[in-house]
Structure formats: C-alpha cells, structure tokens
Design a protein around this nucleic acid. Structure first.
Lengths: 345, 345
DNA sequence: TTGAAAGCGCTAACAA
DNA sequence: TTGTTAGCGCTTTCAA
C-alpha cells in the first residue's frame, strides 16, 4: 500500500487533521477561518489536534483558491533607517487589524535590485504594494510591472511628478523651503546647501525648494555636492573641508538628511568649529541621532509614522474596493511637515 | 458563452500566454524556467507576448505544485539597525545566487509579535527561516512552531543554550570579556557595565562575560541598569547621572551596545566630561554612528555581514540536503570578534 | 521538442 | 452543522 508518506517531504495537511478528527477537510478549514459555525465540541477536538501536531495551514494554497494572498508587500531602500522603520510600523499597525501581513524586501538603493524585488513580490501576488522612499526615478520595467499589476500601488516619501498610482508623501520642495525660512528668521544669511545633486531623487526637489527660497529672500545660494545617494555620515564628515573651500563665509548649512548633518556636526566638533555660533547646521527627517547628539540637531519632521498609517488606511480602502470589482482613482495625500528647532541653529 | 473573464479579478495566466502563442501552457512554463529545450523561435515568440502583456507567473501556484516556495524568511527585531542590515545583505548576496529570495518581517522587539510573524511566515512555506538577533528567550509556541516546521532554522547573533536547530553567532560572553581585557590593558581599573539586566537576552551573556573578566583581573564590578531592551541612545543619555551616583569613581564604562554608548558619549560632551581622559567609553557592535562620532567610539566588531553570508551558505546546504530527503544535523558556527580601538578609550 | 493528464492544499459554492 | 465537488495556476510525469 504505497501512500504519500513514501515521499521525502511529507507535509501535514488539513486532510490529515480532518481524518484524525473524523470530519472532512472543509470542517477544519471552517474552524481555522471561523467563517461559519462549527459544533463547539467538534471545534475543540480539531483545535487540539492542530495544536498537538503543530499544524500551520498552507496559505499559498489557500490564496490560490480564495484569490487572496493576505499580504501587502513593502519595498524599502535600506534596513538601516529609523524613518522607514516608523513608516513600516505605521503600516503594520493598520494592516494588522485587517488581517493583512506586511512582508518587506530591500533594494539597497539600487534600481536594478529594486526592479528584481518588485518582480519577486509580484510573483507572490500581494494584495497591494507600498514603495517606501520612492524616487521619481525607477526603471522603465519597474514602472511597467507595477502598472500592469492590477493591485493598489502606494508610493511614499515623495510626491512624484508622474505617480504610478497612489501617493502618500510630503513636499520635499516645501520641506527645504520652510527650513530656509527658519534659518533666515534666525538672521542667517549665507546659507549653503549640502547634498547630492544627482537628479531624479527626492534630493533634487529639496534643492529646488532651497533655491526658490534663497531667491525669494535674496540670498546667494551655494550647493555643495557630497556624492551619491544615500547621503551618509561619512559624506558629512568629509564635507566640512569642501564647504570651507567652496563657501568659507557660510554661516548656516542646510543638509539633505540628518545623517549627513550629523557627520558635518561631528567634524565641526572635532575641528573646533562652534555650532551654532560659527556655523549653524540643519538636517532633515528627524532621525534619532539628531535628538541625542550634542548639540542637538535642528531638523524637519515629516511624519514618518503617520505616512505609514495613512498609506495603510488608503491601502485597505483600495483593496476593499478591488474586492468589490471597483477601483479607487489615484489619490495623493500629503502629511504635514514642521521645523523642529534645536540647538544646532 | 460565459467564461472566466466575467469575474471581477481576471488575472493573466500561462494558459493565456500559451493560447496567444499557439502552444500549451507547459511550453510556456518551460520557457520561463528554462528547464528543458524549447525551439528558439517558439521561445522568442512566447517571451515577446509575456513582455507585452506584463505577465508575471504566479509563484504560489508554482510552489504548490513543485513544493518549492523559492524563498527564505528572515525575522528581525527592528528595521532600524545597521548591524542587521549588514547581516541581511550577507544573506541576500548568497541566497540570490541560488535563486532564493529573502523576505523579511519585523517583531519590534516583542515576543508576541515575533510569534505572530513566525507563524505568518510558516504559512507561506519558506524553504528556511533565519532569526536575526535571536534571543534565547522566545515564547514556547514560537519554539514549538519552529521545531515542527521541518525546515532549516538558523538563529544568528547569539549562541543560545538550547538552539532550535542551527546557529551562526558569536560568543556574547567573550565579546564582553575581551573588551574588559582591552580596557584593563589600557590601565583602566574601575570599569562599570551599562545595560539592561533583563534576563533571557543577549545582554545577560555580555554581563556574565564582564563579571567573569572583572573577577579574573580583580576589579570591582558595577552594573548600571538602563532599562528595557533595546538599549537606546536616550537610555545612554540618561545613564550619565545614574552612573555618577552609583559609581562616581568609574574611569571606564562598557556599554551593552553602540547606541547606548553614543548616548552616554553625547551626554559627556554636553556636561563637559572629557572622554577618554576623565572617563573611557566602549560600545558594542561596530554601528556606523561610532565610526563618525567625536570622539570615535571603541567597540567590538562581530562580523555582521559575515554572519549573514555564513548563514546563507549553511542554509543552502541544509535546503539542498532537505531536497534529497536528508537532514543536516544542527550546526553551530561562530564568527570571530575583535576589539576596534578608537578614540573613546 | 511538445502535449495531456493528474494533482499540489486549500476554499467557494452548493447540497444535504 | 457538515460534506461533496470542482477548480485556483502551476509543475510533475509520462507519452508522443
């Protein structure tokens, strides 16, 4: 009597649980999904067996049948980012209440990797996909894949000129603009901008905001290019010398991100440049390092957690609509931004 | 003629590609998996159609059939950690060459959440599971689920007393021990330890190592409890006052992690306590903040990337063995640790 | 080199 | 309250 147990992999199935309990597989399914009533004593018997055998139902099979994979995919540039961590937490907390899981994959700031993991995720049929730190710049194929996917796509951390679908972000232009306003109001006049001048990413929007604000106030702009994204502490460290050469009279520096600002700040401490009396430093993103550095870092708070929560709710609506055969038209939501003035300015 | 197109969700399938190309679904499958020869002109025609329609095959269905899900799950405490980022990268780089994807989920340092995401992952039938920053302490159910899962489990970042399956880690005991050695060799004698004294996590191993080393050298140990894990910059910031009260004569502090050490370092800068002349500070983990802080931070390097790469290779071996119906017996591998002496000591 | 049949483990839909 | 049937989209196996 050759049966399945002769194969090397012999997974436990609902059928096994069912026969052990003397019921059909359908009853086991009902118990697990509490979709409809099952006699309490039957239910308890089944649950006991499940627990004893450590049975975990195969959701891939379930998804195939129900056409619901039960998860949302999140594409993130880096696993080392307190901002994305907050966004992720906001998303999780909302989706969890709806029984949706959040699975993440990382692109390491590479467009090619990003394309790969997008396809990887789509193969598993997520019910929606969230791009964290979405850049305007993606590969053509990434965009094509997402557009053809027929699932809600939410880009966060930016408001791209041509969104794929939905957007939950903030204005990078305004963020830089209000920081210049802040610095100007504190009597700083020779304000330099530190960051990558590479096009097609969030940074370029911030540069535009900086330039626009400087123009309005009548200051002379200076942009110090620190190299490729992501901006790092190391780049900030090195930037002090470059800045000194390029704009020796600068009295304030607006950095494209907190890690960059932190690197610069530490270089100042090291070289005895007093912050903020000799030079003021402002960052971007309200990373945790800026809250505990000495001096503490003035920054722009962009609602990292809130973006996740907003994206989560939007995702639920969009998935719900999709299940009814409808489609929510592309939505753009912006979270508020605010300057957090600290010691460094 | 009512066909499937009347349903609201009308996904593209291999069947669609096949009929468009005038072949059977099996041929499409062969093209996509290059498992066996297909006539070049047929292959090209099929690839064209796939590209044009943006078809992405359903891997859940494929997995159901082939019994290979094609992914490994990684359970991580936090998305905000440069060490786990390195481990993740090491893992990805190895697994990718083998056509395996890495999907991540986060526990936020909560045992209950950890249990939930372990089950969530197991439902999707990963071919293996990696726990990053595994603590000895997990819920009973987490352990039970993992043991019953019949897939390779690799715990990293620790060498638990009772491993579930495989382990790729380093000795937290030794790591603290060698740091005390380092401090002692630099003539520090009144060395305090800063960290959570909570049991069942990596920290308690480090405490043991610290205590053992102090005992050997004949120093009087002091443990300053900074509160719940994970140790944060904020805890470090607050710790200076506590330390001053509890051990006012300390000339060196061994912190349980770099973020904690960084918080303490910044508090010292702020309050005018000279580092290292008044007090030396050592951290743990070689986080990026320690490389760029002022002063730079002495720390213990634990091979974050290497652990990922090692775990990846071990995972490949274990999965391979599993496919042949064999099982690799539980393995323990340790990466080397080394003190990185910097300015803070 | 290609196709047909069967089935992976589950759930929708209907029947009892 | 429970069971039966069919089928989700793919791959395995065997046949042509």
């Amino acid at each position: 009597m050759a049966n399945r147990s002769s194969t090397s992999v012999n997974r436990i199935t609902m059928e096994d649980i069912a026969s052990e309990a003397g019921v059909s597989a359908m009853t086991v399914s009902r118990v697990l999904r509490s979709s409809s009533a099952v006699l309490p004593e039957t239910r308890d018997r089944i649950l006991d067996i499940i627990e004893r055998l450590g049975f975990v139902p195969d959701q891939s099979a379930g998804a195939l049948s129900s056409r619901r994979s039960g998860f949302v995919a999140m594409i993130v540039p880096s696993l080392n980012n307190s901002n994305f961590a907050d966004t992720h937490r906001g998303l999780t907390n909302v989706l969890r209440q709806f029984g949706l899981n959040l699975l993440a994959a990382f692109s390491d700031y590479s467009l090619q990797q990003e394309e790969n993991i997008i396809e990887t995720m789509l193969r598993r049929r997520p019910e929606g996909i969230v791009l964290a730190g979405a850049r305007s710049h993606m590969t053509k194929r990434s965009q094509h894949l997402l557009k053809m996917s027929r699932i809600p796509v939410i880009q966060t951390w930016d408001v791209p000129d041509e969104p794929i679908d939905h957007v939950v972000g903030f204005s990078n232009f305004n963020a830089a603009y209000v920081m210049v306003e802040h610095l100007w109001s504190r009597e700083y006049r020779r304000i330099a901008f530190l960051g990558s001048s590479a096009l097609g990413n969030r940074g370029s929007k911030r540069i535009s905001g900086y330039l626009a604000a400087m123009k309005k106030f009548g200051g002379a702009p200076t942009i110090v290019d620190t190299g490729p994204v992501p901006a790092t502490m190391e780049q900030g460290q090195r930037a002090l010398d470059i800045l000194t050469k390029q704009r020796p009279d600068a009295d304030a520096v607006l950095c494209i991100s907190d890690p960059l600002a932190f690197g610069l700040l530490m270089a100042c401490n090291r070289q005895g440049v007093a912050v903020p009396s000799q030079i003021a430093i402002a960052g971007f993103g309200d990373f945790d390092i800026g809250r505990w550095s000495h001096p503490t870092l003035t920054t722009v708070q962009v609602g990292s957690y809130e973006m996740g929560a907003l994206a989560g709710r939007l995702m639920l609506d969009a998935i719900d609509a999709g299940r009814e055969g409808q489609i929510i038209k592309p939505t753009v939501r912006e979270t508020g931004i605010s300057v957090i003035a600290r010691e460094s300015t």
